[in-house]
Amino acid sequence: MFEKKKSMWLFLLPGLAGLLMFYVLPFFGGIWYSLTDGSYENAFVGLKNYIAVWQNPMFQLGLKNSMELSLICAPLVWLLSLVIAQLVNRLRPRGAAFRNTVLMPYLMPSSAMLLIWLVLFDFGGVINRAVVALGFERVHWLQGMPMRVPIILLFVWKNLGFAVIIFTAAFQSIPEPLYEYARLEGAGFFRQTFGITLPLVIPTAFLVIILEWINAFKIFKEVYFIGGAYPDEAVYTLQNYMNNMYSRLNYQNVTTAAYSFAVIVFALFGALFFLQWRMLKRTTG
């Protein structure tokens, strides 16, 4: 660790300047923006914008959908990646090929996948054939509530691998003798999983759920790809609301909605980070 070195500024300044210019200052500047009326005089109106936006049904719809989608996507990715990583780990030392394949979609542009998604989820498409073969009625996957399914699956398809990689790395750092001892004591696979593996990967599990939740909150691409700029009510997210307000040049509403969103997200993750930090402080003394 270097102390009191002037050269630090050389390393810190470019990044710091950029962060300030494109992230921090706009963030604070925007607060002022959300408190004024955007007219020629740009008068201060207090919380009037906030009251108006919070009463706007489209904002409420977007907020509700963003929350719901992220609460479906993040735990889904988390659970699936935990299970897959555990399966891959069971095939140790082989099984790496499976893990590597799961990672591939993370690098694939989901924009290019959109075409095939539309074909698969068409009313007369392969997915519906499977649905009928299982004895159910065909579903209009690209309309209304069911539209969430292709969107969520596109998100899961793309983001699963990242979480699997993090989980397998954590599993592999658990010393093998622990398992050998457990096996000698007669513990089966599930006993080993719940007795050894899971308790030891709690910090990782926490990190993955946070990262995936952050990602899921930002879900917009998938909605835009499948639903377009003005998607169905069932998948109209807060991001859609903000983008539409932006294209109508209603900057006040965009920033007000954005800050409302930021406050919610900050409160949520701030609490989670703080909790995790406290836990870490306690365990490391």
């Binding site: 962060l19 921090v24 200052l25 963030f27 930002k218 965009v254 920033t255 954005a258 993750f269």
Partner: peptide
């Protein structure tokens, strides 16, 4: 930096457009 990581793009969108 952690907090900025969480921010959705749209939060700093309008101020950034102005800058």
């Amino acid at each position: 930096i952690l907090l900025l990581m969480i921010l959705p793009f749209q939060v700093t969108m309008v101020p950034n457009v102005l800058t």
